[in-house]
Design a protein around this nucleic acid. Sequence first.
DNA 1: GTGAAAGCGCTAACAC
DNA 2: GTGTTAGCGCTTTCAC
Lengths: 348, 348
Amino acid sequence: MKYNQVTIKDIARELGISPSTVSRALKDHPDISPETKKAVNELAEKLNYQPNIVALSLRQSKTNTLGVVIPEIVHFFFSTVISGIEDVAYSAGYNIIITQSNESLQREKTDIKALFNSRVDGMLISLSRETNSFEHIDAMMAKGVPMVFFDRVYDSANSSKVIVDDLSGAKEATLHLIEQGCKRIAHLEGPPNLDITKQRLQGFREALAEHNLPVHEDLIVSCPQGTIEEGKAAAEKLLKMANPPDAIFATNDPAAMGAMQTIKEAGLKIPQDIAVVGFSNWFFSSLMDPPLTSVDQPGFEMGQEAAKLLIRQIEVKSKEHIDPTPETKILKTRLIVRDSSLKSGKKK
Amino acid sequence: MKYNQVTIKDIARELGISPSTVSRALKDHPDISPETKKAVNELAEKLNYQPNIVALSLRQSKTNTLGVVIPEIVHFFFSTVISGIEDVAYSAGYNIIITQSNESLQREKTDIKALFNSRVDGMLISLSRETNSFEHIDAMMAKGVPMVFFDRVYDSANSSKVIVDDLSGAKEATLHLIEQGCKRIAHLEGPPNLDITKQRLQGFREALAEHNLPVHEDLIVSCPQGTIEEGKAAAEKLLKMANPPDAIFATNDPAAMGAMQTIKEAGLKIPQDIAVVGFSNWFFSSLMDPPLTSVDQPGFEMGQEAAKLLIRQIEVKSKEHIDPTPETKILKTRLIVRDSSLKSGKKK
DNA sequence: GTGAAAGCGCTAACAC
DNA sequence: GTGTTAGCGCTTTCAC
């Protein structure tokens, strides 16, 4: 902005001293005499001087800004992550620039390039659903841009990332169902190309194996888009079976909701006739009817951890002039049980 | 960032020409010969030259960045607004810097100052719940910083704003209940200091008046924090009355949810025994059981309109060197009826 | 058609 | 203790 903003020069002129003295006085440099400091600070206050960060950024080749590339902002999980990022960034004196790829690889590329042009000090990235090539990422890493991936990560040896322990989370949820006496547990899968889908299925399998329960492959139903409709369709299919399941483990929010709707419409009780657990977040799940027991994903914490990792990386790099070794942080999920008061009727 | 990024100078040196020529060639200046342009562009491509936006910003006193100050990011409505802002900003070539005040006046002040120091070209602001003094805003306006307020606006003559027509929305929702045959309609109010709270109550009153229905003041219950618990408490109080209401108009999401829970727990049917409408957004409301008829708030559109207004203001100001006249944009809500199939049992 | 020079606002050697 | 100078990367007069 122009708006003839007051600069260090204005203060210098008015006080009959040089701009560098003003600069030093403002940052409390030991060389400057107390009187000068006082005069400068008072005038700065009076004129409401505000340092021009853009000039500073150019001068120091450091913008104190983090770029964020996220698939979509309007999503409970991602907005929670942003909030966590903002929290840490604010405390550390960084701004955040948000871009959303809208799940498009093309947009993701454009966004990353734009962030680079803005000379952000580092980037926090969650890949789009479409992303299957990584030259745009590799190019940035080659330039030495600090990057931290979260949730939808780039699985490369030399990139830092923050992920959720999906396998353990899924296992824990499945064990909960088993403890309640469920024997035939269905599994609603998510998008096939995502790693988390595999992890969650694996956790499901491990829980069954631990209790010597067979895995019925026909009880594993795919919900590739993660929509309510898919959840409904899946539940309809399952209910029609000769030997329907006594529980459903839905690995995404909307599918769980859809399934619950269908079950209730069929006149069945949750969890007495069919128990349902979800893989989602406490907020939505608590609103379901009945409230859904679910695996809580620590979005806020993920944002915080990712930002911390990135900031550490940026600062190590600028001070020690070495590339810090990539780190991976795995966050635990938390099973939030909301059907405990109901399960007694079911336990055998 | 340092990362010895290639600059215009590098290209100039390699080609044995001057930086100014390179600059002109890159922006297709008519003076430059086709051969020079070709050489420059090819080398730029080869070296993967990326212009340094920070230098550009300093030079032109224009950052192509919009600052956003929002009470909280993790909120369906606000994240939707951000998405709308991002949409328009991206198309117009602007970055957005997000800050969240966390409903704190102090944070709001800090955020606004930080954005100013970053020399954003303009600001999009939704006030914190605490904000009751406006010097920090006035100071920025005095400096000539373009600002547009949205949703929680600064009600000053010379500020642009985008708001929702809460009065009409509330009226429409109430009329819907009246048409269904409801006679004793309760009103759950929101935070008392917000203007929207008054508007919504006013709309409610007008609808009743239009149908010559009395306003029962004891059916107006305050839910100042807008929490689920408050909604429950309010419903409990209402159900205990000698002559309980036959409908509840809840002016915020969580209160509607809480009320619905209490009503269902009391063994009453929605909407046959008590109809409920909310003032919220389609997404949440569709998940309720039964799905909630509600007044949809156009968050995405609000973000878009606010960003458009701001960008127009910025560009007018920079071109014509005049302060554009403030504009107010009032967006219509949309009543989403989800109880139409159920109401027949109720109509008298 | 191209180059030289100045300047956006700030800081950091280097002088004295 | 303070001033002078140079420069971050870029654009833009003003020369020629």
